[in-house]
Design a protein around this nucleic acid. Structure first.
Length: 139
DNA sequence: GCCAACGTTGGC
DNA sequence: GCCAACGTTGGC
């Protein structure tokens, strides 16, 4: 199983919005970046991801699961863009802020720390465990 | 609200 | 195919 990180600006689509979708989940649409799309193409059903709130929160707020592999993005006719479906699994007991990630030497190489602009990122198993520990959730 | 960094676009 | 100009993102 692989691990990922999904970034969203909460006024556009928030953790609460995803929770409201329940087990049906939601398309992770609107991605218009090749690197992010390629990451989504690599995802398998059952992969886990963090849900990160950019801008105001700047924190990982929950854990999501991939429930459908990459398919055409319904928000565009452009065949280049694809998206996966995700559902909310569990909120973090404590949000893991960007500041906390930057302060932890074990996360120094995290994509979130090094390239904050990429909206869908891979997370290593080691990083996954550290963030689960910081956030107070089971890995 | 500013601005740096990055990605994309389009002229040559 | 290169690179300058532009637009967008997101931390500060």
């Amino acid at each position: 199983m692989a691990y990922w990180l999904f970034k969203s600006e909460p006024s556009t689509f928030s953790w609460d919005d995803l929770v409201a979708r329940g087990t049906a989940g939601e398309e992770w649409d609107g991605v218009r970046n090749y690197q992010a799309r390629n990451n989504m193409r690599a995802m398998k059903v059952g992969d886990r991801g963090f849900f990160y709130h950019s801008m105001k929160d700047k924190a990982i707020v929950g854990v999501v699961e991939v429930i459908a592999e990459a398919h055409p993005d319904s928000t565009t006719d452009d065949p280049r863009w694809e998206c996966v479906d995700v559902r909310a699994v569990a909120p973090m007991a404590r949000p893991v802020t960007l500041e906390m990630c930057k302060a932890d030497p074990r996360l120094a190489d995290m994509v979130l720390v090094r390239n904050s602009r990429l909206s869908v990122q891979p997370v290593t198993e080691a990083e996954w465990k550290v963030i689960c520990e910081l956030g107070g959730v089971a890995p």
